Deep mutational scan, measured.
Amino acid sequence: CHSECLGNCSQPDDPTKCVACRNFYLDGRCVETCPPPYYHFQDWRCVNFSFCQDLHHKCKNSRRQGCHQYVIHNNKCIPECPSGYTMNSSNLLCTPCLGPCPKVCHLLEGEKTIDSVTSAQELRGCTVINGSLIINIRGGNNLAAELEANLGLIEEISGYLKIRRSYALVSLSFFRKLRLIRGETLEIGNYSFYALDNQNLRQLWDWSKHNLTITQGKLFFHYNPKLCLSEIHKMEEVSGTKGRQERNDIALKTNGDQASCENELLKFSYIRTSFDKILLRWEPYWPPDFRDLLGFMLFYKEAPYQNVTEFDGQDACGSNSWTVVDIDPPLRSNDPKSQNHPGWLMRGLKPWTQYAIFVKTLVTFSDERRTYGAKSDIIYVQTDATNPSVPLDPISVSNSSSQIILKWKPPSDPNGNITHYLVFWERQAEDSELFELDYCLKGLKLPSRTWSPPFESEDSQKHNQSEYEDSAGECCSCPKTDSQILKELEESSFRKTFEDYLHNVVFVPRKT
């Protein structure tokens, strides 16, 4: 048989008469490798580009789960590009990614509803959504962080984005990388972005840091009482949809009607710091009717980097990364020049730590249904340095008659930039024990000054392991946590139920 035959053949030295091919099969003959313009397919066939392209389009058009959109890589027609490569849609070739590779997620039936953290986790790592997304989240724990972890990498949506009755959302900033909504599939009414009845939605994105392009379709905003109209108009300008909307697409009466839409800028007039305090004062603000001013709200939190936005980490279910302080308005003076500047002394802060701070007014709604208010920009203030805590785990070892090696770990709280350490030492008198000992005694162990690591005695271990207080009263049991108490109650309830079950099964009433 021919060298490319495997198993047997019907005619000697003829690659077209093989029972099976050793390498690849091409047009009725066995070959060692697939010549151009053919590609290896499933490690035994040679196919042309049209064959591989037909497989790709067949799966793409069917949208069946589990099928493969075949691509070409290293002269092979394979189910998908290997790690580190992405497909070129024009020629199906796998090309190296520039940075992290995109991950295209194809949605069944063309859309997916995100109504819980669990459903959001199914899209973790996706960068391109081939379909439409509907966000409908009523509640949950730590929602802002969970949504950002699972949806934060999405850069492109081919269909539309719909935010509907998501009472738990305060902001859409968890879509931190969303840059493009194509609108290839539109919501009824030709809408590519749809926001309806979101009672706590206050911000779409921080438009000073976020760009969003909507290729096709219109915007729809109705019944978002805490979303200011200025935020919607800003989205029109940034996304390129200005002029597409009709009169009733953006409701003037049901958007922002319960919001404090600040239209003035508060400026800080005085800032002073110490290692654990920050004193702030800002310019006074009074609405047209000074009785509408209820006070100020001061927001602050630790910020290692200057990239904080107002609604980071917030949701309507209680999660809030900001510390909020309510401040009463100052006494009002008739003389504008003698107006008191409101302020606040922030206490209990960490030394040498940068804080993000902003302040906003708290006002009631005027009778004319106009909203007044003022808010400052987010500023960054760093507390002063102070003395560091003591170095940890000092170790001293003498390696000769004239040297001592000293080692330690950095302090747990540096409280500033540590530039150097101060080492103090003092000579001590020799131990009298060394002169009084009889060095001729056998088995004498000389006193040693070398360091030995501390260890816990058996008594201390027994005390720590004991669940009861000892007789001397030195140790006591740790208080039980809520989960331990709940577990004990469940076990007790189970024992009672099981005992009742045994009584009912074992003891049967005697027939009379």
Rank of each mutant, 00 (worst) to 15 (best):
288 P>E: 09
157 I>R: 00
407 K>S: 02
396 S>D: 15
239 S>A: 11
343 G>A: 05
335 D>P: 13
330 P>W: 14
349 L>S: 02
357 I>H: 00
234 K>W: 09
387 N>L: 08
141 N>P: 08
187 E>D: 09
360 K>W: 03
269 S>M: 05
314 Q>Y: 02
191 Y>S: 14
173 S>K: 09
132 S>G: 14
105 C>W: 01
177 K>N: 03
344 W>Y: 08
280 L>R: 00
132 S>R: 01
156 E>K: 10
349 L>H: 00
346 M>D: 00
363 V>A: 13
131 G>N: 03
211 N>F: 03
284 P>R: 06
356 A>L: 01
203 Q>Y: 12
132 S>A: 10
136 N>K: 04
163 I>C: 05
103 K>T: 13
296 F>K: 00
331 L>Y: 08
126 C>W: 00
401 S>G: 12
409 K>N: 13
208 S>G: 15
253 K>Y: 07
309 T>H: 08
154 I>H: 00
120 A>V: 08
150 N>L: 11
360 K>T: 03
214 I>L: 07
296 F>N: 01
331 L>I: 06
402 S>P: 03
246 E>F: 10
230 S>W: 03
390 V>H: 03
227 L>V: 03
144 A>H: 07
261 C>T: 02
351 P>W: 15
179 R>Y: 10
236 E>N: 12
364 T>L: 02
338 S>W: 14
345 L>R: 02
107 L>H: 14
153 L>V: 10
316 A>E: 15
285 Y>T: 04
321 S>I: 05
311 F>P: 12
327 I>F: 05
371 T>V: 13
399 N>P: 10
206 D>C: 08
157 I>G: 00
360 K>L: 14
359 V>W: 00
342 P>H: 08
120 A>L: 10
400 S>M: 05
300 Y>S: 10
235 M>E: 00
153 L>T: 14
199 Q>L: 12
226 K>Q: 11
157 I>A: 00
127 T>G: 14
156 E>Q: 14
252 L>F: 04
376 S>N: 01
346 M>C: 06
185 T>V: 08
355 Y>A: 02
233 H>C: 10
333 S>N: 13
401 S>V: 15
324 V>M: 11
383 T>S: 05
234 K>T: 10
280 L>N: 00
341 H>Y: 09
245 Q>N: 14
213 T>A: 07
171 S>W: 03
252 L>W: 13
233 H>L: 02
210 H>Y: 08
200 N>F: 08
260 S>P: 13
344 W>G: 12
359 V>I: 13
365 F>R: 02
158 S>R: 04
118 T>V: 02
370 R>H: 04
183 G>N: 00
203 Q>H: 07
353 T>S: 09
226 K>A: 09
258 Q>A: 04
374 A>R: 05
347 R>W: 10
106 H>R: 03
289 D>M: 06
244 R>M: 12
191 Y>A: 06
197 D>T: 09
265 L>T: 03
119 S>R: 05
281 R>Y: 14
219 L>W: 09
176 R>P: 06
313 G>I: 04
226 K>E: 04
323 T>R: 06
382 Q>R: 08
241 T>F: 12
374 A>P: 13
229 L>M: 02
326 D>H: 03
261 C>M: 01
183 G>K: 01
270 Y>T: 13
165 R>S: 13
107 L>C: 03
108 L>K: 11
373 G>M: 11
392 L>K: 15
134 I>W: 10
260 S>F: 09
291 R>C: 04
304 P>A: 06
157 I>L: 05
274 S>C: 10
168 A>G: 02
353 T>G: 02
322 W>R: 01
146 E>S: 03
110 G>R: 04
119 S>F: 05
378 I>M: 01
298 L>C: 11
157 I>H: 01
406 L>R: 02
145 A>W: 12
352 W>R: 05
321 S>D: 04
136 N>F: 09
200 N>K: 15
169 L>F: 09
242 K>F: 06
105 C>K: 02
383 T>G: 00
411 P>F: 01
388 P>R: 01
165 R>I: 13
354 Q>Y: 15
287 P>M: 05
341 H>W: 13
161 L>T: 03
383 T>F: 00
225 P>H: 04
238 V>S: 06
171 S>P: 00
334 N>Y: 09
399 N>S: 08
138 R>L: 05
353 T>Q: 07
283 E>V: 08
126 C>L: 00
197 D>N: 15
210 H>I: 04
210 H>L: 09
189 G>K: 02
142 N>V: 08
400 S>A: 13
228 C>E: 01
183 G>L: 01
267 K>E: 02
267 K>S: 08
265 L>G: 09
133 L>W: 00
266 L>M: 10
341 H>S: 09
261 C>I: 02
192 S>D: 00
307 N>I: 13
336 P>M: 03
319 S>Y: 06
410 P>T: 15
391 P>E: 01
392 L>A: 03
125 G>V: 13
244 R>T: 07
284 P>Q: 13
151 L>F: 06
312 D>H: 09
105 C>E: 00
407 K>R: 02
181 I>A: 00
238 V>Q: 14
116 S>F: 07
339 Q>G: 13
391 P>L: 07
214 I>A: 06
171 S>C: 15
363 V>H: 03
361 T>Y: 11
161 L>H: 00
324 V>K: 01
247 R>I: 14
272 R>W: 05
140 G>H: 15
107 L>D: 05
113 T>Y: 13
304 P>T: 13
332 R>S: 04
224 N>P: 01
355 Y>F: 12
183 G>H: 02
193 F>C: 02
158 S>F: 15
321 S>A: 13
131 G>L: 00
305 Y>T: 13
176 R>W: 02
274 S>L: 08
170 V>A: 06
401 S>Q: 13
409 K>R: 13
303 A>Q: 15
233 H>R: 06
193 F>N: 01
394 P>L: 07
307 N>T: 04
114 I>D: 00
227 L>D: 00
369 R>V: 09
393 D>V: 04
135 I>F: 08
209 K>N: 03
149 A>L: 09
397 V>F: 14
164 R>K: 00
131 G>K: 01
328 D>S: 03
347 R>P: 10
313 G>T: 14
109 E>A: 12
251 A>G: 11
173 S>A: 11
265 L>E: 15
371 T>G: 03
301 K>P: 00
154 I>E: 00
196 L>I: 14
350 K>Y: 07
294 L>R: 01
122 E>I: 04
353 T>V: 13
106 H>C: 10
202 R>Y: 14
347 R>D: 07
201 L>H: 00
252 L>K: 06
371 T>W: 13
195 A>I: 15
313 G>R: 11
321 S>E: 13
116 S>A: 06
403 Q>F: 08
272 R>V: 02
323 T>Q: 12
235 M>V: 05
146 E>R: 15
289 D>Y: 05
335 D>W: 09
143 L>P: 01
342 P>F: 08
392 L>Q: 05
217 G>P: 01
400 S>R: 06
355 Y>L: 01
198 N>L: 04
253 K>T: 08
386 T>M: 03
347 R>K: 13
179 R>C: 13
166 S>R: 00
160 Y>V: 03
242 K>E: 06
378 I>Y: 11
103 K>F: 07
254 T>C: 14
124 R>I: 13
248 N>V: 04
235 M>I: 14
201 L>Y: 00
180 L>N: 06
159 G>V: 00
